[in-house]
Every structure is written in structure tokens, then in C-alpha cells.
Design a protein around this nucleic acid. Sequence first.
RNA 1: UGGCCCUUCGUCCAAUGGCAGGACAGCGGACUUUGGAUCCGUUAAUGGAGGUUCGAAUCCUCCAGGGCCAACCA
Length: 573
Amino acid sequence: MRSTDHRASPEAPSREAPPRRDFLREKVAEDAASGRFGRPIHTRFPPEPNGFLHIGHAKSICLNFGVAREFAGRCNLRFDDTNPTTEDIRYVEAIRDDVRWLGFTWDDERFASDYFERLYEIAEMLVGAGKAYVDSQSEEAIRERRGTVTVPGTPSPYRERPVEENLGLLRRMRAGEFPDGTHVLRARIDMAHPNMLMRDPLLLRIRHASHYRRGSAWCVYPLYDFAHGLSDAFEGITHSFCTLEFKDNRELYQWLVREAGFERPPEQTEFARLELDYTVLSKRKLLRLVTDGHVTGWDDPRMPTIAGLRRRGVTPEAIRAFADRIGVARSDARIELATFEHAVRDDLNMRVPRVMAVLRPLKLVITNWPEGQVDMLDAPLYPHDVPLTGSRPVPFGRELWIERDDFMEDPPRKFFRLAPGREVRLRYGYLVTCTDVVKNAAGEVAEVRATYDPATRGGDAPDGRRVQGTIHWVSAAHAVAAEVRLYDRLFSVPEPDAVPEGQDFIASLNPESLVTIRGARIEPSIAADPPGTRNQFERTGYFMSDPLDSRPGALVYNRTVALRDSWAKVKDK
RNA sequence: UGGCCCUUCGUCCAAUGGCAGGACAGCGGACUUUGGAUCCGUUAAUGGAGGUUCGAAUCCUCCAGGGCCAACCA
């Protein structure tokens, strides 16, 4: 139906700026120049497969893959799957999909769970060197004896167990002779260390649980600190980027890779995690939204997950541009939603075809238009300032739908739309002047009547008169009905994480984060579009037909982002 | 016996001892067949006090404010 369909080409011309130099890249550049690692730059993105990736992960993905590309290095995708009770292959698959969709390709795919054997060998080595011991205290006792930030810990009564006894116990732990929680392997460092992480950190714990990849091959599982740095070292990672809250872990990271004998071990550097206004970015909270049914799933378009943003219609280019714009630094950063929305609009503006859709229809009858006559107008798919071409036919008839908001019976001075006695332009169509208002029994406006000027086909007046307002419309006889889902911020407060004492973050959920409109009317040119098609509904916003719920004859559109609305400001004055 | 980190326009990021700059947001204007986009203009910041220096956002000291750490989570 379209004379040209640019929507078939998914890639818009690259508008991405060269990557900026942040403190991490400065450091990598230095290390690359000095050849300090004696191997190519190597990064990794290390998600735990216990949930879906979100926009905060996207920042990390862009960083790790970006650095690898910029410095001609490599980047691994490593699943940090050391906790059998929370992880699932389903999350592994979702994470792969999301990273690929974002536009990145990993060099090697690795799993921490493939390193269990090597980690266990290192555990035995540490025991042999007197650097680790088996502690048989209860979980509570271990916690209590760790001390507090201001009080030193006290050594475990098992801390001085002979090497041979430790080794025997460790082997029996590994062999499955002990129930959960009876023994743990701890590093022997310093129970009075000012850094809590260094107070004899736990290395291995017993978990008689089936691992989604290793099945029941193992019943001792490494903890994060034991697994992470050593996994980096196994893979020859040079730069291990993580978020600020791991700063204290760095000391332990270094202790472990040195004790394990790595000559030029990877180096951890921390950067600020992303915080976004009006949303939460903790997996625990996102999981709760899903399991408690506050959203329809991990891919609910209101979720800040990659899957949610994708289903909402956000493009990978927009997410990458956003990541580039916000930069990487070491101070806690909270990003305004406007910054993200700008990146989305900026990308969509240049690549998405325009169509007309009326969300809340009001009947407009052109009284001087001949009954039954249809005028096929040719309307461009892109505005004058977007360098793409193409057009589609749009039928015009006697009865049209216009937006309820585009008519006011008693308008303020600056209202440029339709009102009794006023003339407006019907986009790509004719100039019309409102003559009558028809009301229903309740006194509500049920129909508006107007006359059109036959000399203004296309929207220009030959006499040069200026018409300030242009409104969108669809032909009532040709319109396609659709469901439109208007998504808004998930929370009504900028910092849902900052919950007042004794309150639940769920309480600040925005009750209007989804407004479903069932009787929307859209111009017929979109009728055969496949699910997942993006359009701008002129004057309203950017939309994408839902990849799962939309089908021919029962179209469903998700609002990706509204257009900037400067009228909203004028209106409030 | 606490340790560590952070602090530059409203927000985010630069300035690496030498004119505090960019982006988003805001405001004003131009243009406009999207109250969109674009273009132009503009408001707006070095947390405080000392010190070093010809010169400090940058180095030092102290103070203030914020953050992280006391899961057999990552």
C-alpha cells in the first residue's frame, strides 16, 4: 500500500558520536600503551542469570563491549552462575537475546560454573598453604564473630585447625558428606581487618541443590568473591569493570588472584551504577514486580528491562546513544527521565514513518462534502526535515474522526485548534471551519459540524490566508480500530527506592502507568503492518504495534514515548 | 578500630596547576501543514574554611554533606 516502505530497513544511518574519554578509558589507554598486561585488552560482561537485564546493565554492556572494540580487544560474556538456588537457563537465554539485540557480539561465552573444578583446586591449594580453613560454626556464630564496622571480629575456634584436618574436611564437604550449613571454607586473613570483606571471607558453602548447568555434580559452591576475580584471571581479563558498591571487594579480589599465583592479574575498577528517576533498577525489586503481578512480566513495556524497553518500541540505537550521553564516572548519578526520553525521540524522529491516529474519537461531519464521495490524498511518510521519502494514500470523506482534545466549545485565546467559528487545517487535507456543535442528552459534545473550502486541497489556501492550527484526523468510513496502550512512568515518585521507614516501595507505584484505550481509530495504511512496526502517530507520540498481542484485524499499539508537548505548558498558564 | 569512596549549572558529564565548557531540562525568539523537528539566543555551577603557588575546580589540611561495607546474594 505504501509507495515506499522504509520500515523494511531496520538500520538508520549511524548518528552515534565517537565515544567520549572517561576515566576508565583513560586508564585502559594508558595500560594499552604501556603494554603492562602483555596481552590484548580484555573485558567481560558478567551477569548472574537470576533475572532479566535492565537499562543499568545496558550501561555496563556498552562500556565493556565498547572498550573492547575501541582498543581492538576482546569482550567475554560470562555468566556468574555460582548460586544454584536462584539461577535458571531461561535467564541465560534472555540475557543472550538482550545483549545481541543491543548490538553486541561477545568473543567467548563462559560460565563461572565451568570453573568449579579449578576453583576447588585453588581451595585445596589455599588450605595447603595455611591460607584457608574449614569453619564449623553455625551461620549465626559466624555472623556474630565477624564483629561490626567499629568492633573487630573474633577468631573462630576452628581457625587454627591443622592443615591435614582442613584438607580432610574440605574433601568430605566436596564429597557430600555434610548437610547444608555445617561447614564452610574461609580464607584466613585478618578477623580484625578494618575492611569487613577481609575478615576471613567465606569461599565455599555447602548447597545440596541442583545447579541448572552442573546438575548435582557439585554440592559445594563458591561465593562471589572467590569466583569472580579468579574467573577474570582464568580468562585473561585485563580490565574488570564493576559498580561502586564493590569497591571494598577489590582488596579481596587482589588477595585472591595473587595467592592463586597469577603474574599479571586483571585489575578491578569501579564506576557509578545507573540510577534513573521514576523507576527501580534492582533485580530484587524487579523480580518482586513480576512475581507479585504488578506488571505482566519481565518484558512488560513499563519495566526498565531491556526486554521491556524493546517491547515498548525503544531501539538499541537509542539505548546506546543514551549510555553514551550519560557518560561514566565515579560519583553517584541519578539521571532525569527527560534525558532518556530525549535519546529515544532523537532516534525515532529520524527513522519512523508518520501516520494519523485518533485516540479519543469525536465525529466531525463536513456538511458541504458530497455524501459518499471519497478523495484519496497522497500524504508523505516523513516530514520535510527528515531525509527519507515515501508516501501513502489517505482517504478523506464526509465523516471524519478527530481528537476530542482538538475541539473546545469555549477555547482560551491561544488554543489553535477547532472551536465554533474557527478554521483549522486537517493535516494533508482541507481547511475546515466549524459551524455547529451537536450535543447528546447529557449535554456532552457528540458531533461537530464544519464546512470545507474546496480550494484548499492539500492544506494550502490559494488566497494565502494563514491558518494557525493543524489537527490530525481519519476517515470514519475507512478507519481501522485499534487498542492503544499508553504507558507512563512506573512510579509516581522520582526515587522509589527511597522508601520512608516502614513503607513498601510498591506503595509508590503509579496507578496510571498504563492507560488502555480500546476505541482508537487509525488510518487504513497501517492495516497490514506486521507486529513490531513503529510509527509516529502525528502530534501524539511514537508507537509500536505490540509484538505479542497485535494481529491483523486486532491491532494493539504500545506508546513508546509521547511527543514533547509545549502546549501543556501554555495550557497551564 | 572503623575503613573506603564521592562532592563542578536544576540533572549528567568535561576542564588532568593557566579564559569553568558540552548535553539534557528551563526561558526567549525564528521557522513550521505535527503546539513535533530544526535553527538562533539565553539563564545557570566549582559544598565551606584555611594553606601551597605568579596562578587552584585541580595539590595539601580540616570541616560539612552524601554513599558503600557487618547475606553461607551478586
